[in-house]
Design a protein around this nucleic acid. Sequence first.
DNA 1: TTGAAAGCGATACCAG
DNA 2: CTGGTATCGCTTTCAA
Lengths: 351, 351
Amino acid sequence: MSDRDTSLLKKPTVNDIARVAGVSLATVDRVLNMRPGVRRVTIDKVNDAIVQLGYVRDTAAANLARKRFYRLLFVLPETTNEFVLALQEAITEQSGKQHDQRTTLAAVSVPPFDPQSIVDVLDRLDPQSTDGVALFGPETPSVRDAVNRARSRGIAVVALVSDLPSSDRHHFVGFDNIAAGRTAASLMGRFVRGPGRILVITGSRLARDHLERRTGFDAVMREEFPDLEVVASIEGRDDPELILNMLPGVFDAYPDICGIYSSAAGNPGLIRFLEASGPHEGLVVVAHELTTASRAALASGLFDAIISQDTGHLVRSAVRLLKATADQAPFDQTQERIRIDIYLRENMPAV
Amino acid sequence: MSDRDTSLLKKPTVNDIARVAGVSLATVDRVLNMRPGVRRVTIDKVNDAIVQLGYVRDTAAANLARKRFYRLLFVLPETTNEFVLALQEAITEQSGKQHDQRTTLAAVSVPPFDPQSIVDVLDRLDPQSTDGVALFGPETPSVRDAVNRARSRGIAVVALVSDLPSSDRHHFVGFDNIAAGRTAASLMGRFVRGPGRILVITGSRLARDHLERRTGFDAVMREEFPDLEVVASIEGRDDPELILNMLPGVFDAYPDICGIYSSAAGNPGLIRFLEASGPHEGLVVVAHELTTASRAALASGLFDAIISQDTGHLVRSAVRLLKATADQAPFDQTQERIRIDIYLRENMPAV
DNA sequence: TTGAAAGCGATACCAG
DNA sequence: CTGGTATCGCTTTCAA
């Protein structure tokens, strides 16, 4: 039996710093929070004491004294697709649970694929009333600029689901969509029996996440499963009706389709088509996001696998990241990494 | 653009309760913490005020005043297998990060498959110095009793990785091992081409988690892939050397093995065997737990899939659960559900 | 430029 | 049984 050391139990406080540095509490606080009006020498004295004692601030006590409330905003596309709805639900759910952690969550919806309205929202944001924003939207130069403006006003911003790599010092809450596409291809290639064509249903050409999934998918299909031909994809715009209407034509043109990769939203359209067009022996379907509809399809065997990102995790992670950024505090890298979840019927979580 | 309401920003405090109920702070505290020495009528007055105001206690402030420190202990089997090592690392890592959350983590190792030493550890635990215990160990009547004794002394206990369903009011931090076995079988059945036999490597007959995986695996193989015969499993006791020594005999006896399900630890032994015995065209290997060794095997193509539970998540979840239990506070069900992670080469997380 | 003192929300000790 | 009050670690006026 081996005990592991748990290091020093008593943590140094601001009082200890004040004593060691020979200054008052107020001065320690000024240095700690980088407030002006302290002489260089005094600053140094305090900082020395801080490192010497190995001080780390008690955020809880600080927030108590400060009566701090984190006011966070989620900006989502105004669509009714399953994934965004699930995200909204997760936000609502967390909203309740976060309230006693001095955190309030709000959400606004903006017209999809409309950079200007995102810019408008961001530019209207007041640092007095908003501490951080999680943004799920397209990557355009104007959005990037608005993000940077918001940041320079002191508002923390993270990209949600779809990355905004062009903005500086950014955090991204979501998974690697190229890898997600590669994962889908790997499952597709291994599940499919015999020859045939693979159909890809994408969302929009404007959505970076959709493009990346497609890129990853195509790469693996080409490299590892050259016998399977990927036919030109259809652009479903996340719209079930549109998808439902397009599919019959595609199946007429390519009767030998043996696999479908539904890489965006709009799965209910695909499901209705599959149900209506009778049993498809040997057809492998890989889709994205675990929702009520896709879960049922997986359970019934209509879908074979689902690539998913946990919406609860996305929201909690965005919240933690925004709070940490607002406080300029560090965060747990590994905890914030969003996994590329693979669900088969067998490991699908209950509810 | 639609704003969502974020409910009342100002939370009621103990002072509000005292004012509304017409009593002192001290009395409010007595009622809140169910301390004795308060008249029935007074209790009711206070409770009325509490519900009327919709009061929820500020845990941070309470912990500050109380100078509370959560002292948590992890009890792990004293083995050197990869998974337990990864768990230990995760504990050490969290230990550092939890320190500023008024939480210290310690770990003890006990001889594996030895219920008595677990009982000894549990019985020696002093509620004065330990608030909660996360226990990874075999399920036996004596362990269950010791767990219940610890609980009645006021120590919170959760089962880790392997469930202890026979104890009362228990929490389990880990995934459904039957479902994990089913998931492995589903992947195996779909990945394998052509006929042949499937070999299962188990750990110990005493470990509930191992048994459950085996049960789930066999069920799905029988139901859905009756063409594939599962040959009698070998019991590797999580020991790489033992596994390495047993495998040649098994392959001699069954030259047509086309799939291996490594359901416990000891993967390095399997890996060495596979590397030494030359390329195995078409052999599908599904193993458990993402570790340095298994990750490399997945990357090189030696393994085809890995079923895993996130050790970081396990530890964080155990910590949150133990703290909540110690405080008799509620917790976020969905956040504490441990997923059955499936990793292919394509979605394996970096590092 | 610096310090003293009053709180933040909750707990706990000591009187009465 | 009940109330007053110091305290926890930190922030924030208000003076000096």
